[in-house]
Amino acid sequence: MTAPTPSDPAAVTLELERLRRSVEVGFAKTDGALALLVQRSDQTDEALKDHEQRLSQLERSRWPLPSVAALVAIAGLLVSLYTAAQ
Rank of each mutant, 00 (worst) to 15 (best):
T2H: 09
A3N: 10
P4F: 08
P4K: 01
T5F: 00
T5S: 05
T5P: 00
T5K: 08
T5H: 10
S7F: 02
D8M: 04
D8E: 10
A10W: 01
A10R: 07
A10G: 06
T13S: 06
T13N: 09
L14R: 08
L14V: 02
L14T: 07
E15D: 02
E15R: 03
E15S: 07
E15A: 13
L16T: 11
L16A: 10
E17R: 12
E17W: 08
E17T: 15
R18K: 13
R21L: 11
R21C: 04
R21T: 04
S22R: 12
S22F: 03
E24M: 14
E24N: 15
G26D: 11
F27H: 14
F27C: 13
F27Y: 10
A28H: 10
K29S: 10
T30M: 07
T30G: 05
T30W: 01
T30F: 10
T30K: 11
D31K: 08
D31N: 07
G32I: 04
G32K: 13
G32M: 14
A33Q: 13
A33I: 04
A33M: 08
A35F: 01
L36T: 13
L36H: 06
L36M: 07
L36Y: 05
L36R: 13
L37T: 08
L37D: 09
Q39E: 15
Q39W: 05
R40I: 09
S41F: 06
D42T: 01
D42H: 00
Q43R: 05
Q43C: 01
D45Y: 02
E46D: 09
A47Y: 06
A47I: 05
L48G: 08
L48K: 15
K49H: 11
K49V: 04
D50Q: 15
H51I: 09
E52A: 09
Q53D: 03
Q53G: 01
Q53I: 03
R54E: 14
L55R: 03
L55P: 01
L55C: 00
